[in-house]
Amino acid sequence: MKFFEKLAKIDRRIIFVILAITIISPFLFNLTFKLTPLEESKRAFNFINSLPEGSTVIISIDYDASSMPELQPMLEAVLRHIFSRNLRVILLGHWAAGVPLGQQALEKIASEYGKVYGEDFVVLGYRPGLQAVIINMGKNIHATFDNVDYEGTPLSKLPMMSNIKTYEDVACVFGFEAGNVGEMWIQFANARYGVKVLLGCTGVVAPDLFQYRQSGQLVAIVSGLRGAADYERLAKHEAFASYGMTAQTFAHVLIVAFIIIGNIGYIFTQSKKRRSS
């Protein structure tokens, strides 16, 4: 069984190269796999789809560049869906380093749909203090953000904001989460004010949120690049996430293969040890 012993000693850099090649190849050969959206992603899509025209969605940017490849395409897909249904957007964020990512996506998609700042979307920006911000928004959104948008324009000059004072005036909060902010939206905005909360999360965060789904505190969880790809497909605009998922398949199969090979080697060497003893 020298073969397995040798296999176990492969330099990690060789494994790195194999992984990189595995991810790059589907892009180079332009391979794409069609996917069937997950139930969770459909729940989110159907909820947004059921909102009456003109409703307002609060988008919360609670991630930064460290999880951009997962959440940025998801945000763009959700924004496309929102604008195609003539819903309105209020964008804010609780992760200091990520707010500009949300802004850039919003500006890009809004211009695709010819949406106007102040009428169809508003950027409130960021305030420190997370839970305090979420609670105070339930009392008065304007006051929490000192009556100005991120650039200092008075909210009274933005027509869209004249009818929006508290959570009662918005249809839901759609948070994009790379940490625990999503739970804060549930624990404060939903539990206290009854706002409907949907979360788009990184794969790392998502598995810890399903208990909120079962207890009815959360409408749906769109998770990771897969969730983004699902949403792109449901909103009929396939982009980065959909192409990326093929590379994701290749990488997952490779990693599962790694786990199997590692375990075959392990069991062989174990039984060999047992025999010799």
Binding site: A8, I10, R12, I15, F16, L19, A251, L254, I255, F258, I259, I261, G262, N263, Y266
Partner: peptide, 12 residues
Amino acid sequence: FFIASAAYRAFR
């Protein structure tokens, strides 16, 4: 990369 390498070496 590190998680792939760990999958190969550590997950038994």
